[in-house]
Amino acid sequence: MTLGRTPSEIDGNFAGVIENNFTHGSASLVLSRLTDKELAGIARLYRQTNAGRPPKLLDVLASRLTAKELVRVAGVFGVNDVNAAVQRSASHSVASMYAARVATGEVTIPTTIMPMSGPAPTRYMTLEEIYLEFRTAPVGSLGPAAAFSETVIYAGGQVAAAGAVGWKIGSEVGDLIQEYDPSLWDAIGGTVAGVADRIQSAADAVTNSSGVQRGIQEHNADGMFQYPVSSSSDPYGDWDATWDLGNDIGDGCFD
């Protein structure tokens, strides 16, 4: 799977990428690493980008998760839709345990789910999709910092370079960090404008670099998030999003 090279491609691919990530990764592990707010964001964007098609993601989850995990999913995707998927795709034992948990009132809407900050979620929706796609992939699922690092590098190096899409990557990714991981925002440090400028500068540097310099700029961008991709077991990133960084690490450039 690929994320896409323009906002419209990314939007069109979102549902399929999320389905693929949960199909080929460890669904339970990925789910356990998502916050309630991230899971709710996936549910909201999945509905929007999958409109008119069967909810394959729910069938994937029903076939791969435990009854307890499915109760959590039902809290954000909706009990009726998850019930239907469980009836279609879960094993008999999981379906029975899930039904018993639902009957005792275990399904709840997490209190941490709040409307997204800012005047309109669509203002940064495509960057949100990129983040959540990485967040459910192997490297990005390690933590928000890794997913945000990949988002900045991908948006700067792939999408912006391909189409001059006009995103204000710094402020929009900054909004998402404050929304999904305020502690990461505090770790980056500085004023709101200062952090946004640093993110934007990192994305611009990746966009305008090539060859050896590109690996260096990807490494610098990753450094802003405390090197989560560089220090992972796969510094090439999900879908080779940080390919040049991985090559330079393999060559010992940052030892």
Rank of each mutant, 00 (worst) to 15 (best):
A85R: 05
A85K: 01
A85Q: 01
A85L: 09
V86S: 07
V86E: 02
Q87A: 14
Q87V: 07
Q87F: 10
Q87Y: 13
Q87M: 10
Q87P: 05
Q87N: 15
Q87L: 09
Q87C: 00
Q87I: 02
R88Y: 07
R88S: 08
R88K: 06
R88A: 11
R88V: 07
S89Q: 10
S89K: 15
S89P: 03
S89A: 15
A90C: 06
A90I: 09
A90V: 05
A90L: 09
A90T: 11
A90W: 13
A90Q: 06
S91H: 12
S91K: 12
S91E: 14
S91R: 14
S91Q: 14
H92K: 12
H92T: 05
H92Q: 02
S93A: 12
S93E: 15
S93G: 03
S93D: 15
V94G: 09
V94S: 10
A95Q: 04
A95W: 01
A95F: 04
A95E: 01
S96N: 13
S96K: 14
S96T: 15
S96Y: 13
M97A: 13
M97Q: 13
M97S: 14
M97P: 00
Y98H: 04
Y98R: 01
Y98S: 00
A99E: 12
A99G: 01
A99R: 02
A99P: 04
A99Y: 00
A99Q: 08
A100K: 12
A100P: 01
A100V: 02
A100E: 12
R101F: 11
R101A: 14
R101G: 01
V102E: 08
V102C: 04
V102F: 10
V102I: 05
V102H: 04
V102W: 01
A103F: 07
A103E: 03
A103V: 05
A103L: 01
T104D: 03
T104L: 10
T104A: 03
G105Q: 06
G105K: 01
G105S: 04
G105Y: 11
E106A: 10
E106V: 03
E106L: 06
E106I: 02
E106F: 02
E106M: 13
E106Q: 11
E106K: 07
E106Y: 05
V107C: 11
V107Q: 05
V107K: 02
V107R: 13
V107L: 03
V107T: 08
V107H: 08
V107E: 09
T108A: 15
T108S: 14
T108D: 04
T108R: 14
T108P: 00
T108M: 11
T108N: 10
T108V: 15
T108F: 15
I109V: 15
I109W: 09
I109E: 11
I109M: 13
P110R: 10
P110C: 06
P110M: 02
P110F: 07
P110I: 04
P110Q: 01
P110V: 02
T111K: 08
T111A: 09
T111P: 00
T111S: 12
T111R: 09
T112P: 01
T112S: 15
T112Y: 08
T112C: 02
T112V: 11
T112N: 08
I113Y: 06
I113C: 10
I113N: 14
I113H: 05
M114I: 14
M114S: 13
M114C: 00
M114F: 06
M114T: 15
M114L: 14
P115W: 10
P115S: 12
P115H: 02
P115Q: 06
P115K: 04
